[in-house]
Design a protein around this nucleic acid. Structure first.
Length: 672
RNA sequence: GCCGCACUAGCUCAGUCGGUAGAGCACAUCAUUCGUAAUGAUGGGGUCGGGGGUUCGAAUCCCUCGUGCGGCACCA
């Protein structure tokens, strides 16, 4: 028997017969380790204790104290334990797949009767029985035919299909605890008793399509979360409760920002407070874009279907457009229009007016474009996914050679905006060529590389989303996360050589001939609606002072201070600060609480002393401490804080003055 | 769009077995002039999401439509 050398994390090495299992290695170290062990890490791979090791390797024995492998195994085996529990309670249930996900796992079942929320506690109880039974985990290698026959005999067609779709002809690993069996590549715990029985919770039931295909059977998915112990579970559940308090839908009501109602599903009724955030953000973006060399345009809302047919959207997205029919003069055929679902075809119409020269490129054409898309009902989500929204949209018309530089310039603009708005944790995803696409592979190679290079040049990493690009070109997605960690695409940049072609855009190049420009579709915020939703959740409603809809409330303690309160409000408003007086006949405690709940960043309290001394007691949101300051000092300080970041002294992104000067793009470029 | 769940006063929620709807906050009026997260009293407020059905009788049971929530699918 050949000998192998296994090296331990402390650098020591031992020699064993080839084929020794990780469990035997653990036993060789100590009997207690053999008992506590859950798995091994062999040359970096997560290794089942029962698997043989055939060659020299590094090895580490894992116990429940090793968080990464432990959580992986706990969650993984809980998926199997849950499937066993479900089949024990409802034997007519078919099992499909059950992977580990962030914080837990899910398992998809087929059963004719729906699971109810009450069933979750029944299943949990059964799972705890299985854990307490401490059944040993056992695996066997089967060949495919035997496995397929087994699942045919058991009337488990989903498993049959699963095996048949596994490429190659390799044998499969079968897995048991007790008399329950599943198909699984492992690794696994030694026995079900190694799962902490009080560290998991079943969370929800949901529908999910078999194999993610909406044309196929809808299965029932049960989600669970699991941690190494009860305290970690409790901490996780507590975090979810805290996150729910930051939900923009809840805060939107509490702060009186907006509402939505049945007659206009997926569309926002902005209230004065919310609209203040919106317009403040829009003013800011307008300045940022102008100083970055964009020109701003505005295009029609209702556009004849002919343009959408030319652009190709009618074929692909007709069902997702709001159709507007007009019956002029009772003509036999009504004119069919669509509310614009995007701005790009209209921007090409502007580009196409007159002749464009290569000297005009890159031409950066921006619009705060109101769009309407008939999104599927199930997709709507607060103000984050809506049917009526406004993009901070722009299209950069440029040459192939300008793609890298323009993309890098855009990423820098986006990074500067996100930093100004308090976001430091965002990610870039590069979506590459899908199966169904147009254009040559060489062209895809070139453009995908251009986007990746631009990211690196701007100093940012990205992750790949293979096959997720649009049919005409790759895209960068810039994602932010909401209160409970769901990711939302906000910024985007897409390379599109197709639309200029379909809409016959061209420019005259150095050679005197007409050439096609490339279009970069790009947005920093994405939609104002979604971005404001994220902004609210990120700041838990406590927006930066310059964005806060109600910046200062001047609250009187006695009615003798009323006139001074109006004077203070007037002084603040004279400096552009959003201030209002609260002279109601209420106690200061009451006023402080109400405006704190309403997320007003600064409360100025006025009593007899303050009237006397022309001061105010300054209370910042979230701080119990107050500071008495003179009125002049307060006005000066708050006026400074109310200034948008791009207008502050030393703001790094382009001269603030230039923002208001109307100059052609090329000249701004020269300035930049 | 699909699966499941929900919808009761402006908001948050209670409402037993089918017997004619309640609380707190908010709002209004009055009293109170108060020093940093809820002063007290009184009062008004409801087509129980819409429609249909079962029943002597429906917030409650059934059907249907709408909207929302959690997922899935979708996201030009």
């Amino acid at each position: 028997m050949a000998q192998i050398t296994l090296t331990f994390p402390d650098g020591n090495a031992r020699h064993y017969d080839a084929g020794i299992t990780a469990a035997d290695v653990a036993a060789d170290i100590s009997p207690s380790l053999r008992k506590k062990a859950i798995s091994a890490t062999v040359d970096g791979a997560h290794w089942d204790l029962a698997w043989p090791i055939d060659a020299d390797a590094s090895i580490a024995i894992n116990t429940l104290k090793d968080a990464v492998p432990a959580l992986e195994l706990i969650r993984h085996d809980l998926a199997h334990i849950m499937a066993r529990a479900v089949q024990a309670i409802w034997p007519d249930t078919q099992v499909t797949i059950g992977p580990v996900i962030k914080d837990g796992w899910y398992y998809d079942f087929y059963r004719s009767e729906p699971f109810t929320p009450d069933d979750l506690s029944t299943i949990e109880k059964k799972m705890k029985e299985i854990i307490n039974a401490r059944d040993d985990v056992r695996t066997e290698i089967w060949d495919r035919d035997r496995a397929i026959q087994h699942y045919r005999d058991r009337a488990e067609p989903y498993k049959v299909e699963l095996i048949e779709s596994i490429p190659g002809n390799e044998p499969l690993r079968m897995y048991w605890h007790g008399d329950w069996q599943d198909l699984c590549r492992g690794p696994h715990l030694q026995n079900t008793g190694q799962v902490p029985a009080d560290g998991f919770k079943l969370m929800s039931i949901a529908g999910a399509y078999w194999r993610g295909d909406s044309n196929r059977q809808m299965l029932q998915r049960i989600y669970g979360v699991a941690f190494a112990n009860k305290d970690d579970l409790k901490a996780h559940l507590h975090m979810l409760e805290e996150a729910a308090k930051r939900d923009h839908r809840k805060l939107g009501r509490e702060m009186d920002l907006y509402h939505m109602q049945e007659e206009a599903p997926g569309q926002v009724f902005w209230h004065p407070n919310g609209w203040t955030i919106y317009t403040t953000l829009q003013d800011y973006m307008r300045r940022k874009q102008r100083s970055d060399g964009y020109v701003e345009v505005n295009t029609p809302q209702v556009v004849n279907r002919v343009l959408w047919e030319k652009s190709g959207h009618w074929d692909n997205y007709q069902d997702h457009m709001f159709i507007v029919e007009v019956d002029e003069d009772h003509a036999r055929e009504k004119t069919v229009n669509a509310l614009k679902p995007m701005n790009c075809p209209c921007h090409v119409q502007i580009f196409n007016q007159g002749l464009k020269s290569y000297r005009d490129l890159p031409l950066r054409m921006a619009e705060f474009g109101s769009c309407n898309r008939y999104e599927p009902s199930g997709a709507l989500h607060g103000i984050m996914r809506v049917r009526g929204f406004t993009q901070d949209d722009a299209h950069i018309f440029c040459t192939d050679d300008q793609i890298v530089a323009e993309t890098e310039k855009f990423i820098k603009l986006l990074a500067s905006v996100y930093a100004d708005l308090g976001f430091h944790d965002w990610t870039i995803k590069l979506s590459t060529r899908p199966d169904q696409r147009i254009g040559s592979d060489e062209s895809w190679d070139r453009v995908e590389a251009a986007l990746g290079d631009a990211c690196k040049a701007a100093g940012y990493d990205f992750t790949l989303l293979p096959g997720e690009g649009a049919f005409y070109g790759p895209k960068l997605e810039f994602t932010l996360t909401d209160a409970i960690g769901r990711e939302w695409q906000c910024g985007t940049l897409q390379v599109d050589p197709n639309l200029p072609d379909r809409l016959d855009a061209n420019y005259v190049a150095q050679d005197g001939a007409k050439h096609r420009p490339v279009m970069l579709h790009r947005a920093v915020l994405g939609s104002f609606e979604r971005f404001i939703g994220i902004l609210i959740e990120e700041h838990a409603g406590k927006l930066p002072f310059w964005l806060a809809p109600r910046q200062v409330v001047v609250a009187t303690i006695v009615s003798d201070a009323d006139n001074y309160a109006f004077e203070v409000v007037a002084a603040l408003r004279a400096r552009g600060i959003r201030a209002e007086a609260d002279t109601r006949n209420e106690k200061i405690n009451y006023k402080v609480r109400e405006h704190s709940v309403g997320r007003v960043p600064v409360i100025l309290a006025l009593g007899g002393r303050e009237v006397e001394e022309r001061t105010a007691s300054v209370r910042r949101l979230g701080e119990a401490q107050t500071r008495v300051m003179t009125l002049d000092a307060i006005v000066a300080q708050l006026a400074a804080e109310a200034t948008a970041p791009d207008l502050r002294a030393g703001a790094g992104h382009g001269p603030a003055v230039a923002a208001d000067v109307d100059v052609p793009v090329t000249e701004v470029d020269a300035l930049a």
